[in-house]
Amino acid sequence: MTATTTPARPAREASAAHAARVTRRQRGRNRHSLILSLLMTVMLLYALLPLLWLVVNSTKTPGALFSTFGLWFGGPFALWSNIHQVLTYDNGIFVRWLANTLLYVVVGAGGATFLATLAGYGLAKFDFPGRRAVFFVVLAAVAVPGTALAVPTFLLFSDLHLTNTPWSVIIPSLVSPFGLYLIWVYAQDAVPGELLEAARIDGAGEVRTFFQISLRLLTPGVVTVLLFTVVATWNNYFLPLIMLSTPQWYPLTVGLNDWDQQSFTAGGQAIYNLVITGSLLTVIPIMIAFLVMQRYWRSGLAAGSVKQ
């Protein structure tokens, strides 16, 4: 720490023990690269400018959207009136879509995480007949792209008369082979076999051991899987688009796209300001979730990518 607060001190004077403690990162403080900062700033602007565009244009009236420059504020400040319109347009259908999205996220992503955690833990910590077969089938399924399944699942569900119900969106969201894989990787190190053995000797049942001991040790992995499944269901578009035909069951993504299409259909009312402000309201919760839980997704990404 002293090295960073008094950078003027020549390195030679530092004791050998201190020098060993100075990490790569701290030494780097003295040789920041300007070119690197510039290049990374270009990337940062590329990432953030469209989001700035979204925020700026959520504050504009429909008229100002056309007449003012897109990347800066202009015209009367209409954010609150836009939000009010989004929430009340068409008898408050946006609120209904939000509630639907929450339903799909809580039941779909929550259920997927729960099932993946149980199964990943079971595969990692129990030896049972057929375990290897199960593992290989699930591993193969990780490579099956979810979008490739949308049309086949729709065809099956429509024969079972499940389409246009919340179940048609929830049931396919419940399967997360990748989540199972992450938990399996995580459980191998996080839950020591000796601990389970000790719990068994103490007479604790397997279910109780799981909920009271193992689940706590698995928490970082579980939160990671939860985050990925929440993002997947919150952002889900293809599946609900193909499954649902009445707006009453739409999630936000399909609903927003529907609003956007209004302006292209004959006789439809163009409601760009609602599309833009509705998009902003859709993005904010998921971004907050990401920023708050960034510690978890970083460790999860590391587990998923390094331990291949």
């Binding site: 990432a47 469209p50 952002n235 927003l256 796209n257 998009s279 998921i286």
Partner: peptide
């Protein structure tokens, strides 16, 4: 730079 990943594909495409 990671933030756009949280934006739904539909919203990203609309934007």
């Amino acid at each position: 730079i990671f933030l756009p990943y949280a934006v739904p594909a539909v919203v990203a495409s609309l934007m």
